[in-house]
Design a binder for these strands. Structure first.
Lengths: 202, 202
DNA sequence: GACATTCTATACAGATCGGTTTACATTTGC
DNA sequence: GCAAATGTAAACCGATCTGTATAGAATGTC
């Protein structure tokens, strides 16, 4: 059973690191905000890096869980879900506590390769890509991996564009682009009209 | 005339900030690496933030200049240039000193809105988008602004994907997606075959 | 050669960094 | 009631942070 104090620390660490960066937030600040003494904090995490790793790991599972649930709630058919990814993203971008992707931000601060922090970030991205590949497969697309890779790039791009340009609506642009790519990857006759046709049998 | 020492400081600041983050590099380290004393450094820049701003500004003009030159050298026709953007990006990603987009990294560390640093980053992205819009316009596409926004998102997405996943080849995926989007935005009959046709008159 | 200027190296100030330790309060088990 | 255990706040450590000030070397000018 994970301790309650430990969870408070991880939750607070996620919030502060996400909003102010990893180098920008000190241990003291996290301990104080979490109402935990530094001593007990160092009882649960032997270093700042371990706290960062715990925060990233928890953020990973929490974020992907919420993301998948939101996608599944937003659409029923596999193909609609593939596009609903961008609706969910738009809602995320519109949160007033949206500061981009925490893992991209982490890599921006910790660029050295072959470190535990980078590995956690790479792993998050790999799992997000795997989820999109699964959706693309279920949607019965041709070359699902390639299409999923393109949709993943659109998702990353809209995330950083929303972050830097403070414009959540770029998710709509990404969705339109995704529609074209998905349409073009549908099996069957190639020269169909560009409008979305009703579900074809898979 | 900009002083030589000043330029050394800016160049060194760009290199170190880009590789290790803004909070991760101190004033002393930059002054030492630039072979400039702290005193003369504070003669040219009254604070670290001013040095950061000068570094971002110089990086902005340098990067966009090199990028545009590389695109123009890589292709002759407007439509080919629109796609050559991703070839240039791929070469950039393959540099062993590639650490993602410096401006995205900056926003990840300085999230507070309405600051000079954020304004510099937003401005860079705005100018990059304007350049892509210009290419889209010259290529004679329908809805050039919307296509340019999508291509910009693809560019941002491939940049962060190359950064986090250490895979420069995602530029190729982005290029393929861009080809589909450009093809779909060409004026004239809609149901042409998916292969790229030779230049149509604009 | 004398002098003002400009650079340097370096020490310093005060704050904060990550991390440890100390002293005390609170809870717990018996 | 009492001791062991666990929590706390807070001082403390050395290092580093941004920013300033000092002392001396190099430079240029007359």
């Amino acid at each position: 059973m994970t301790s309650k104090k430990r969870q408070q620390l991880v939750d607070t660490a996620i919030e502060l690191f996400y909003a102010h960066g990893f180098h920008g937030v000190g241990i003291d600040r996290i301990a104080e905000a979490a109402h935990v003494s530094k001593k007990t904090m160092y009882h649960h995490f032997r270093s700042k890096e371990e706290l960062i790793l715990a925060a990233l790991k928890h953020r990973d599972s929490l974020f992907r869980n919420n993301f998948m649930k939101a996608v599944e709630a937003a659409a029923d058919t596999p193909r609609e879900r593939l596009l609903a990814v961008f609706d969910v993203a738009q809602a995320w971008f519109s949160d007033n506590k949206f500061y981009g992707c925490m893992f991209i931000n982490a890599v921006g601060e910790y660029a050295e390769p072959d470190t535990a922090i980078r590995a956690a970030c790479k792993n998050f991205k790999r799992q997000m890509l795997a989820y999109i590949e699964e959706l693309a497969q279920d949607a019965g697309l041709e070359r699902p991996k390639q299409v999923a890779a393109a949709l993943s790039i659109l998702l990353e791009g809209s995330t950083v564009t929303a972050q830097v340009s403070e414009n959540p609506d770029c998710a709509r642009i990404a969705r339109h682009a995704a529609e074209v790519l998905v349409e073009q990857a549908l099996p069957g006759p190639r020269d169909r009209p560009p409008s979305l046709s009703p579900d074809s049998p898979v």
